[in-house]
Design a binder for these strands. Structure first.
Length: 421
RNA sequence: GUGACCGUAGCUCAGUCGGUAGAGCACCAGAUUGUGGCUCUGGGUGUCGCGGGUUCGAGUCCCGUCGGUCACCCCA
């Protein structure tokens, strides 16, 4: 009995990092005033065909025919679903639209390092604003997330590029525009393929390798001036590097594109995104013009990186220590007081404490061991002293006797005092 | 889709020449009938991934298959 290839059972020990990442994604996006939304996990397969006809993306789709004879697919990405939602919502929505989503996505591919068949991804998009200031806001959000997780400019880099810059290049070189996709696919492979192969493909296209390398080596800074000055104002410039070799694979990008990598390049991209100003136009069959810019950040590479970078791992552990699974373990030393103990547990839970207690009668020593093993901060002993109870601060081995009547309130005070000392 | 390496307990792994399964950690119980991290004692919790073949006998050898890891491909 195994999960399917590329799918994972996630046990509570491993779920903690996901909770941490999701929490950081969600709180960061809300700090940037993005609103959360959701789209269906299962979509008509045609949603992915329309925007990318003839693409090999279709081979990586989990697709099947449902009982109603519909061709359906598990979503491999969110942008097409989002665009559909925007098409019906955008005409009456306040602009710019700033939305984010956290969800699971599926790709039928062989798994490898940093890549599974089901993964979680954070998506944030700004629609209805064509200025590069929107691109900057989105990149600033990505950096805010990574900073919140403890990453610094010496850990990661945002490689910034632009498809419109490449379009300008083709114009300046008198390269026919219909060769742009082929050119971009060559550029995309510059870092992976041997130079001879790149050279050969360029010459076949009638493009001068010298001109291309010169373009890459001296990016046209004017084309990025607004974006770069905004990012500097956000305090993000240390993370940014102009790098025209980034073009991204998807056909729908039209302007700014970017990818975020770990500096050691031990993984594929942590995040990526870009501007797609014509997708709404295409998907609405020309009825809506809606410029948009989007960002995607997956959980697989990110969690690996957090766990293997010492200072981000430390930050994760610090966060976990304030997010205990069990805060109070109630020890029932006198089984006849079980009803009173349960009532006390209920009060504490209503006050917001995470409380566990033994479901069957066991020895006190065993109960203390369970409290310890559960990682509880306090043990609350209910026994012969009733209606008084003993509160033990486990880490300090200190015990305080309290009146059970006053409990949730007196506990609040004790915790406040512990924090200030 | 192609290729390489790897599959033994929950985890990390040992298992000789082919002779019917073992260690540490973890877990459960007790030593200890109201106080936890140490110690001691007891407990194996297993479809040796699965199927077939060779053999008197297979965890071990052979074939197939499934799964894992990584690379290619592709990258949303």
């Amino acid at each position: 009995m195994h999960p399917l290839p590329g799918f994972r059972d996630i046990y509570p020990e491993d779920f903690a990092i996901r909770r941490y990442i999701f929490h950081t994604w969600r709180t960061s996006a809300r700090l940037f005033a993005f609103r959360e939304y959701e789209a269906p996990t299962l979509e008509p397969a045609s949603l992915y065909e329309k925007k990318n006809s003839g693409s090999e993306i279709l081979e990586q789709l989990y697709r099947f025919t449902d009982r109603g004879g519909r061709e359906v697919a598990l979503r491999p990405e969110l942008t097409p679903s989002l665009t559909r939602m925007l098409i019906s919502h955008a005409p009456s929505a306040r602009k710019p639209i700033r939305w984010f989503n956290i969800g699971n996505f599926f790709r039928y591919e062989r798994q490898q390092k940093g890549r599974l068949r089901e993964f979680s991804q954070f998506n944030a998009d700004i629609a209805g604003e064509s200025s590069p200031t929107a691109d900057a806001e989105l990149i600033a959000l990505a950096i805010h997330i990574l900073r919140s997780l403890g990453f610094t400019p010496s850990d990661i880099v945002v490689r910034l590029s632009s498809r419109s810059a490449w379009l300008d290049f083709t114009n300046a070189q008198n390269i026919p525009q219909n060769l742009l996709p082929e050119l971009l696919s060559i550029v995309d492979k510059i870092e992976r393929d041997p130079p001879e192969v790149i050279q050969h493909r360029l010459i076949q296209l009638g493009i001068s390798p010298e001109a291309l390398y010169q373009f890459i080596n001296s990016p046209p800074e004017d084309a990025f001036s607004t974006l770069l000055s905004e990012l500097t104002a956000y305090g993000c410039s240390d993370f940014i590097q102009l790098d025209l070799r980034i073009v991204r694979g998807l056909a729908y990008y039209t302007g700014t594109v970017f990818e975020i990598f770990d500096r050691q390049r031990s993984y594929r991209a942590i995040a990526g995104g870009g501007r797609y100003d014509t997708l709404a136009h295409t998907l609405s069959d020309g009825s809506l013009h809606l410029p948009a810019v989007g960002l995607g950040m997956g959980d697989v590479v990110l969690s690996n990186l957090i766990l293997q970078t010492p200072h981000t791992l430390q930050k994760f552990h610090d966060w976990l220590s304030n997010d205990l699974d069990v805060e109070i373990y109630l020890i029932l030393a006198e089984p006849s007081l079980r009803p009173q103990a349960i009532s006390l547990v209920s009060q504490l839970r209503s006050s917001g404490y995470r409380v566990e207690f033994p479901l069957t009668t066991t020895k006190v020593a065993k109960q203390f061991a369970s409290a310890e093993a559960a990682g509880a901060r306090f043990a609350l002993l209910v026994g012969s002293e009733w209606p008084r109870v003993k509160l033990k601060i486990l880490a300090q081995r200190k015990e305080i006797e309290l009146d059970s009547q006053s409990l949730p309130q007196s506990l609040n005070q004790i915790i406040q005092n512990l924090k200030t000392t």
